[in-house]
Design a protein around this nucleic acid. Structure first.
Length: 881
RNA sequence: GGGCGCUUAGCUCAGCGGAAGAGCACUCGGUUUACACCCGAGCGGUCACUGGUUCGAUCCCAGUAGCGCCCACCA
């Protein structure tokens, strides 16, 4: 911190001159620490302010900040900072997820590298201890990165999904669900990762289309008198586990074979031919091999026909079926079996290329193996029904609404959720087994009888994340936090984890909090979904593409505010956004602009206290009028979470109106009699603007606001409220007229190559209030005795400007421009008079539209007249050569 | 296979029934009570295509063509 730094704690309550240059790195770090120390971000459950609460989607403990986090957190920070300024007691609760399978994989890799050992070289307890060590040492980097971004989270309430309290919540809800019959254990086909040696839920499996081979194999042994039947498969190795061939019951080709048996090639095991509606007669040969233990469809067929379920490979995907293939890996076995079949002459069509969808473990990318296995499940149907209703009846609002169909598609089609994982890092399933094979679920305050052993499995990571909005507030206890902050006000997250996370919080939130009544059982009142951050050409960022941007590098180069603003400028509801460094540069430039505008105000003695005087100059009244409108607009946009539009609105108001027009106009009045009023208005405008921008760019606004106002912190300043008394149509019209005249003359000068600095005598008629401003901005002199009109310009507002350029003007260029304008005006006249002449239009269009057309017609006529006048004046001008 | 969405200026995107917009890029000019990370002036678009509805369509409807995402027990 430098001696001149505006945030120097040595100067509370007094304005300090700003350094002449904006250096984000100099201001950001110290400010954040000060905010935290002063407790600005700490929620107060005893407060009499209304609550505003949200939970941070807990990043993986292994995580690092990426641009998606930066966007999400910028949105949450803007919402909470604004809420705080509006007088809410804000709780933004941070924390991390233990990320069961991801951490276990990382720890395994870490141990392999550092100690050269595998997972099973440790006991369960040893491994878990290693995982905690790893978590303490390497985890949680993202929290420091969040501080860097400026997130106003309540660090005193930080949580971790494996904390004691949260673990208690997990065990409690498990027990409740178990007792209610909503958790059960069953043997089914599940997704199995042969590398991680665990079950996976459906959404932990990524499908991708891959080129494979569809191989047709003739089943049946002619020597044994079988009629042959041809089946097609992409997974020949599962043949070893076939226990039937299925055909459609109405398929005439095979009807006569139903109930007979055929010999399975290679093993000669005899299997029945069964009829099942599931079979599509039009696909392939219309006959399907059935492997109930290794395919979900076949499992169902097997159940319907009471077929044996033959497991033919172990948990690592190695063939266990007796015979020549035993001990061979599943993928090698496929080739070996195809080779054997080929030798046997059983392959009918060989190597027919076939693209099909193959499931991969979302963590390690290993091809998933459907596997018959005993797992724990959540019975989802009753929970999902409630989750659907809560959104349908509006207790929970999804923003943007266009995302709701995705939610319903998921909730309405949800299948039972496999929650057990054969891992060690995570919440262990709270079910114990007696030596005699009895089992029982125990809650956190219960002690299982001695001699009972606990289930070996842990819960899916998403099980504990699903409790996040209330487990973090102390559930199942009836805490002050839970009573005050649940339901949370809003959940901000990406649409990509709507299914993973949002739906599950709905399921468990509604269930766990059902005693609170249907309205207050919901985990959040609004779900705000943002899009994905993509690279500059709209491509998804991924390590393999090499286009991942580290937000910290951008923060180093341009400041956290610039990164936040550039992301918010692109944050249209629910839509993905492409970002690149140039935009961050642009956002940084905006911060610099603000810096300089505030310096200008400071250098000119802007004042921020006392009533704003009445009887203001046109410019002063106009900018207050605009400021008021901008506040109202920003408020309306915040209600709709339109971050991009809010950012755009404030960006353009600050730059185009305040800096480009108001500051320039103020330079004039600051030199005159009304300087005190302008100083006050200048202070009012900057003070308010900085407060409006603070939620989005907290650092620079804090530095500037404290320097300008001498206030303690903009973080705890009031959010501006609009004051309709400041609307001033007269001043607005006046400034508009000035802008028209100035624009017209500037364009003329530019076209004519007249230097902006060159002083030009001019006569202005028709401009009532703004003439002196126009003269000053344009460096126009009052006409002398030798005044000669060499050019005449008019504006749509009817102001005439006659200029003495004291030299010949480029008549050809000016006439060209005027003729272009004339043509446009005539076209306008034509279009609008045609409309008014059209009876269909005048009889059906609304009056307001017709009135507008009339106005435009009148304006076009006036334009034509003034342009023609200017043209004839041009003819009298001295000729340029 | 099902569902959703997109196609607007060179690029990234707003607008979604009544005069085509922004940022960046580009061109020209510029040391003026802050700011060259700046100021001023410009250039740039049959709003994917074809039909329809309407007094009026970038906007609504239907179809076509590209592109993207999500879901799915495609043997």
């Amino acid at each position: 911190m430098t001696a001149t730094s505006p945030d120097s704690p040595d100067n509370p309550g007094s304005a300090v001159p700003l350094p002449s240059q904006y250096q984000p790195a100099d201001i950001e770090g110290p400010l954040y620490e000060r905010w935290v120390e002063r407790g600005y971000f700490t929620a107060d459950p005893t407060s009499d302010k209304p609550p505003f609460s949200l939970v941070l989607p807990p990043p993986n403990v292994t995580g690092n900040l990426h641009l998606g986090h930066a966007l999400e957190q910028s949105m949450m920070d803007a919402l909470t900072r604004r809420a705080r300024m509006r007088g809410f007691d804000v709780l933004w609760l941070p924390g991390m997820d233990h990320a069961s399978i991801a951490v276990q994989n990382l720890v395994e890799r870490h141990l392999a590298e550092t100690e050269g050992k595998g997972r099973f070289d440790y006991t369960r307890e040893q491994f878990i201890e290693k995982a905690w060590e790893w978590k303490e040492r390497y985890g949680g980097q993202i929290l420091d990165q969040m501080r860097r971004l400026g997130d106003g989270v309540d660090w005193s309430r930080e949580r971790f999904t494996m904390d004691e309290g949260l673990s208690r919540a997990v065990q409690t809800i498990f027990k409740n669900l178990y007792d209610d019959g909503l958790i059960y254990r069953a043997e089914r086909i599940i997704n199995w990762c042969p590398r991680d040696l665990t079950a996976l839920s459906d959404i932990e499996v990524d499908h991708s289309d891959e080129a494979g081979e569809l191989i047709s194999i003739r089943y049946g042994d002619a020597a044994a008198g079988d009629e042959s039947i041809v089946v097609a498969t992409t997974r020949a190795e599962t043949m070893l586990g076939d226990t039937a061939v299925a055909v459609h019951p109405d398929d005439d080709r095979y009807r006569h074979m139903i109930g007979k048996t055929v010999a399975l090639p290679l093993t000669n095991r005899r299997i029945p031919i069964v009829a099942d509606e599931h079979v599509d007669p039009a696909f392939g040969t219309g006959a399907v091999k059935v492997t109930p233990a290794h395919d979900p469809n076949d499992f169902e067929i097997g159940r319907r026909h009471d077929l044996p379920m033959l497991t033919i490979m172990d948990e690592r995907g190695v063939i266990t079926a007796p015979g020549p293939f035993a001990g061979v890996d599943r993928l090698e076995a496929r080739f070996a079996i195809v080779a054997a079949l080929r030798e046997d002459g059983r392959i009918v069509e060989e190597k027919r290329p076939y693209v099909h969808s193959v499931g991969h473990c979302s963590r390690c990318d290993t091809v998933v193996e459907p596997r018959l296995s005993l797992q724990w499940w959540v019975r989802v149907e009753p929970l999902a029904k409630a989750a659907g209703e809560a959104v349908r009846d509006g207790r929970v609002v999804i923003e943007p609404a266009s995302m709701a169909p995705r939610y319903f598609a998921w909730v309405d089609g949800l299948r039972d959720w496999c929650i057990s994982r054969q891992l060690w890092w995570g919440h262990r399933i709270p079910v114990w087994y007696s030596p005699d094979g009895d089992d029982a679920c125990f809650g956190p305050d219960e002690t299982p009888p001695s001699g009972w052993t606990q289930d070996e499995d842990v819960l899916d990571t998403w099980f504990s994340s699903a409790l996040w909005p209330f487990s973090t507030l102390g559930w199942p206890d009836d805490t002050a936090e839970l009573r005050r902050y649940y339901p949370t006000t809003v959940l901000v997250t990406g649409y990509d984890i709507l299914f993973f996370w949002v739906v599950r919080m709905m399921l468990f939130g509604l269930y766990a909090n059902r005693d609170r009544g249907s309205v207050d059982a919901v985990p959040f009142r609004t779900v705000l979904l943002h899009g994905l951050v993509r690279d500059s050409s709209g491509k998804k960022m991924s390590k393999s593409r090499g286009n991942v941007v580290d937000p910290l590098l951008w923060m180093d180069a341009y400041g956290a505010d610039a990164v936040r603003l550039s992301l918010l400028l692109g944050a249209n509801p629910g839509a993905d956004q492409a970002v690149n460094e140039e935009w961050v540069v642009g956002a940084r430039n905006f911060c610099t602009k603000l810096w300089n505008a505030t310096r200008f105000a400071q250098l000119n003695g802007a004042s921020v206290s006392g009533e704003v005087p009445t009887g203001l100059s046109g410019a002063d009244a106009w900018i207050l009028s605009r400021l008021n409108a901008v506040i109202a607009e920003a408020d309306a946009l915040y209600e709709r979470f339109e971050f991009a539009k809010i950012a755009d609105l404030l960006y353009h108001f600050a730059w185009d109106e305040v800096c480009d027009w108001y500051v320039e106009l103020a330079k004039i009045t600051l030199a005159g009699d009304t300087a005190p009023a302008t100083r006050r208005v200048l202070g009012e405008v900057l003070d308010t603007l900085l407060r409006l921008l603070h939620p989005m760019i907290p650092y620079v606004t804090e530095a500037l606001w404290t320097a300008l106002t001498g206030g303690e912190s903009v973080v705890i300043a009031d959010w501006p409220h609009d004051d309709t008394g400041r609307h001033d149509p007269v001043a607005t019209a006046e400034v508009l007229a000035v802008q028209e005249v100035v624009g017209e003359v500037r364009r003329f000068r530019s076209d004519q190559g007249v230097k902006p600095s060159q002083r030009v005598p001019a006569r202005i008629t028709g401009a009532a209030a703004g003439e002196s401003a126009v003269r000053s901005l344009l460096r126009l002199d009052t006409p002398g005795t030798d005044f000669t009109v060499t050019a005449a310009l008019t504006t749509p507002g009817g102001v005439l400007i006659e200029l003495d350029l004291s030299s010949a003007i480029d008549v050809v260029a000016e006439r060209g421009r005027l003729l272009k304008d004339l043509a446009a005006a005539r076209k306008e006249l034509e279009v609008n008079s045609a409309k008014l002449a059209n009876e269909a239009f005048t009889s059906k269009a609304p009056d307001a539209v017709i009135a507008k057309v009339r106005d435009r017609l009148d304006a076009a006529e006036a334009d034509i007249a003034r342009i023609e006048a200017a043209l004839s004046a041009l003819e009298r001008a001295p000729r340029a050569e």
